[in-house]
Amino acid sequence: MQQQAPILKIDDYWIASVQGSLHDQDVIEFKEALLSKIMQPESKGLVIDLTVLDLVDSFVTKTLIDIRGLAKLMGVPVVIAGMSPPIAITLVEMGLSLEGIDTALNLQKGLDKLRNTGKER
């Protein structure tokens, strides 16, 4: 599981890189692992990097929305970074435009975005 989606920490920001295609069970475990990490008091934000993700289904999407909602409850901002065009098109065609979730072109821009939102608070 850890191989599929490593969760790393830079400064006080968490970075989760989702790789390959996730099975439903993997997705649930990923969510659990992620939540237990951002529970830690020093967490300032979370970037979910989808650069190497090549397939999404509605369950993965739902989980992304869930994570965002849960993280918001804990006061941790979430940014989704590096989504590829085919995945964006799939999501839009499915009618899931992930309203309310912040997005960024790449990991760097995602981190920048988190730092900026941190400053505004």
Partner: peptide, 12 residues
């Protein structure tokens, strides 16, 4: 609208 939404998902 779909194009704009997809672009937003990429982060633009």
């Amino acid at each position: 609208m779909k194009t704009v939404q997809a672009a937003r998902l990429l982060g633009a």
